[in-house]
């Protein structure tokens, strides 16, 4: 997952989904892709949660009294 970015991960996820939906891959390959896909999901989620956390932190630094719930629009 080094050098992986959210965008790259998303692109790869799309690729994997298309491959899996096609459905004529070897079983071994199918399982590997499925596993990779789940890993990418986790990665993307962590990235987003991390980004949200950073934003909240910055917002609070900028404006300590601020209600951070603006992020949940």
């Amino acid at each position: 997952m080094e050098n992986m970015t959210f965008e790259k991960a998303m692109a790869r996820l799309e690729e994997i989904v298309l491959g899996l939906e096609e459905g004529n891959l070897e079983l071994e390959k199918t399982l590997n892709l499925f596993e990779e896909g789940l890993r990418l999901f986790r990665f993307c989620e962590e990235q987003l949660k991390g980004a949200e956390g950073r934003v909240m932190k910055l917002v609070q630094e900028l404006d300590p009294g601020r209600d951070v719930s603006i992020l949940e629009e």
């Binding site: 959210f6 998303m10 999901f41 989620e45 987003l48």
Partner: peptide
């Protein structure tokens, strides 16, 4: 928007 993108991929049958 990115969450939405991710959710959309997650909704695909394969997952």
């Amino acid at each position: 928007r990115r969450w939405q993108e991710l959710d959309q991929v997650r909704d695909r049958k394969v997952w």
